[in-house]
Design a protein around this nucleic acid. Structure first.
Lengths: 199, 199
DNA sequence: CATCTTTGTTGTCAATGTCAACATCGCGGT
DNA sequence: ACCGCGATGTTGACATTGACAACAAAGATG
């Protein structure tokens, strides 16, 4: 591709990547479509060919985030556990992976769960979020199947687990832990939760 | 006070209240200082006498939110429990109160925990947040003192509890619970967590 | 009653998001 | 090979907004 071609080539991806890094550095409020266009070397109205408006770009960013989160969680929970120890470890890994993702891109996580997404985009966002929920549920079910934890509605258990991970991640990325290392809190959370699932 | 006085009388409070209701209705992004000024019947630059900039108003809103949350949690956890049942009930009430607050003003909660606050304001926000954390810890300590739950670093336990409440609140207000009633999930979370604290 | 501080007003500016009208590119059908 | 058309990018415009400066009125304080 020539250095100066009328068409950019892959503006959509360029914009998304620039936006993703921008929000982590300057916050989501400081994001400017015109600035993104300048950085990409295109005119100020070019982004509108790929995103109807600013909100649409944020929606796409959030959806991307959910997909990446799901990929990250999936990687941490592959294979079926055969022992209680293994099941417990999978649970730990899931928690660590979630909090790791959050600490690596806190603003994106915040955006993913923000309430400002357009109703039209919400459908896709919920679907993308469900993938992560389903992974959590899979870990719970696998643990139940080998008797590593007691019975109980796996959906509710998974929801509470997911919520706990999310809460710890938010507190950690918000700097509200006062001295307590995030990793320690993740361990405590995982232990308490696993403990509560026995019986 | 005359209907038309040059001075408004209590513009600061008026702005905060209007802003609080506006963000819940239209989202925090749609908040406009000039619109607030119009609604209050003052000129477009009047708000700057009370808030250095828009962020300062959002910071004040968040701090107010933390104070109201703490007040709400405090009301739900008054008095010292004497029996294990009472201690458990206090814990439940705390969880319910937190989630209730979140569902009543989801956007405000989101704003409170957002990462965009100015460094200067963060100090006060953290202090205001600590009050709620301290309340949670008090409930944990009280339960430990009468042997309703096992030992363990009360700070960490309280942090995890707080995180769990917060996570459930976020999922609930984000509509990510799929059919599962929020109250049910709160009960499940509380039960699992309490269970994990035995030993 | 004089003065100083607080509060509110008017005018202005640059930046932004969005839209409409126009330009260029590249691909597929004939 | 070419031509038409959709996709992509550009230019120009506009209303809104947050922020600032200079000024005005009100109220408190001596």
């Amino acid at each position: 591709m020539p250095i100066h071609s009328y068409h950019h080539g892959d503006l959509r991806r360029t914009l998304l990547e620039a936006a993703a890094s921008s929000i982590e550095i300057n916050g989501v409020d400081a994001l400017s479509l015109r600035q993104l266009a300048r950085d990409a070397g295109v005119s100020h109205a070019a982004p509108s060919r790929h995103f109807r408006d600013k909100q649409a770009l944020l929606d796409a960013l959030a959806e991307d985030g959910f997909n990446r989160l799901a990929a990250s969680l999936e990687e941490a929970t592959q294979g079926a556990p055969t022992t209680s120890t293994e099941a417990r470890r999978r649970f730990d890994d899931l928690a660590r992976s979630y909090v790791g993702f959050a600490l690596a891109q806190p603003t994106l996580l915040s955006l993913m769960f923000s309430l400002k997404h357009a109703p039209s985009a919400r459908v896709e966002l919920l679907a993308a979020g469900h993938a992560s929920m389903a992974l959590t549920m899979r870990v719970v079910v696998a643990a139940q199947e080998i008797g590593a934890i007691g019975p109980g509605d796996p959906q509710r258990i998974a929801l509470v687990a997911f919520a706990t991970f999310h809460g710890v991640a938010i507190l950690a990325s918000g700097g509200l832990l006062d001295e307590v290392p995030a990793a320690d809190l993740v361990a405590t959370a995982s232990e308490l939760f696993w403990n509560g699932l026995q019986s």
